[in-house]
Design a protein around this nucleic acid. Structure first.
Lengths: 232, 232
DNA sequence: GATCACTTACCAGCAAGTAAGTAATTGCGA
DNA sequence: TCGCAATTACTTACTTGCTGGTAAGTGATC
């Protein structure tokens, strides 16, 4: 039989993958786990550099000295590999930032600035998110549920931080927290794209810090409307 | 001979396309021009909904009742069709906003807000830019030169508007104009992505206006640093 | 009569996935 | 501790389906 361990295929129909690479099927050899991580790293590289649609299993297999059938043995299908790769990336993200927990409250904004700084040293990770998040809006893209829930979660976390901040600063006007939360994630993403296109023109960390600060301050004190600058 | 009018293939090796659809080859019939526009519209739809790598000539041909060879007759190659489509989109953009010229000075910021509003009524255009700009950072993507020069130009225009604004408002500290210009384009792009993923959660026009205003005001009056909010 | 706007037919290449086989490793019962 | 059956980690070989591009032909239009 084409053994294809169906154990680790948990995200069958747009569902969410909840396990991590370690906990796959009861008794898997450590060498196998290591190989799977190498495949996932190769997948990050290939999907980042070529996109999901254009990157091939053979590309990934080459990087880890396997045939494309060898990759399929471990992950069952290309789509499943993509999904596993995304959660793998999420789980190792915390390690990269050597923090145990993402802070809540106003510290979250500083955390996001620090993330931008870390990201400016790992273009590969930035590229895979940039390419796949945009690709995910295309017809029936397998990564769409992932990015939908990712943005929902992140916006919620930022909005919570804003609530705490407003309370702390005695600001009662909280109507713009929603747009502001989306905007903060948006600048970060948009700057990453421009940085990938023009690495020497864009200062990712500096620009991110400036923009986040601008949005945070705007929530606390709106300032003049844009139309004020047009006549007078 | 496979007539394949090589006249209109001007962007051979990463160069820039400078003509528009009208001026293609001396004597082309009006019906032909109309058909070509239909093909370009179909290309926007397909490349927007499936990406460049994943969208096929047959997909596009179907929409205009041709075979894929018929499309190739008009545009020579898939890559050339993409490039023609991008410049076609640029040229018709002005018409969509029923303006003759993009304003300079502080009015540019209002123009950008109005653009966001117009964009919230044309998801197709938004999607094709979102998908292709991100895809363009992948290996040897044919649209990369287009997006590189697009962002350079736009950043320059926004920076110019900031210079005028600073002069007008008597602000001499212009160091953040660079990051701010990139940030404004970045929020717009980033919000579009989130809006495509969650059309009913994101208010594209409102959020864009808020964010642009935040960044513009931050250039004029920086406000407190983020770290101020973390300890009291 | 030449050019144009196509079509049909074809090709070569590539991609994901399947089937079947093989060598190594493992757990396990005696 | 040995031996063996089961499992694992692959490979090779193949199929199926699709893709962009080319060649050659055909009827309509200029």
């Amino acid at each position: 039989m084409t053994s294809n361990n169906s154990d680790f295929i948990v995200a069958a129909e747009g569902g969410t993958v909840t396990h991590d690479v370690q906990s796959i099927s009861p008794r898997t050899r450590p060498a196998t786990l290591r190989k799977r991580k190498r495949i996932l790293d190769a997948a990050i590289d290939i999907f980042g550099n070529k996109g999901y649609a254009n990157g091939t299993l053979a590309d990934i297999a080459d990087q880890v000295d396997l045939t494309h059938a060898g990759v399929l043995h471990h992950f069952g299908s290309k789509q499943n590999l993509l999904l596993e790769m995304l959660t793998y990336r999420d789980h190792t993200d915390v390690a990269d930032l050597d923090e145990q927990h993402i802070p809540g409250g106003p510290d979250l904004f500083l955390h996001l600035v620090r993330t931008a700084l870390v990201n400016s040293r790992r273009a590969g990770v930035v590229q895979v998110y940039t390419v796949l998040s945009a690709e995910s809006v295309t017809d029936d893209h397998p990564a769409r549920p992932y990015f939908e829930s990712r943005y929902s979660t992140l916006r919620g976390q930022v909005a919570d931080a804003f609530q705490v901040l407003c309370l702390q600063e005695g600001v009662t006007e909280t109507a713009m927290i929603g747009p502001a939360s989306a905007s903060i994630l948006a600048v970060m993403d948009g700057l990453q794209l421009q940085w990938l296109l023009h690495p020497q023109e864009i200062e990712l960390a500096e620009a991110s810090e400036f923009a986040i600060r601008a949005v945070v301050n705007a929530v606390l004190h709106p300032g003049p409307e844009l139309s004020q600058y047009s006549r007078g």
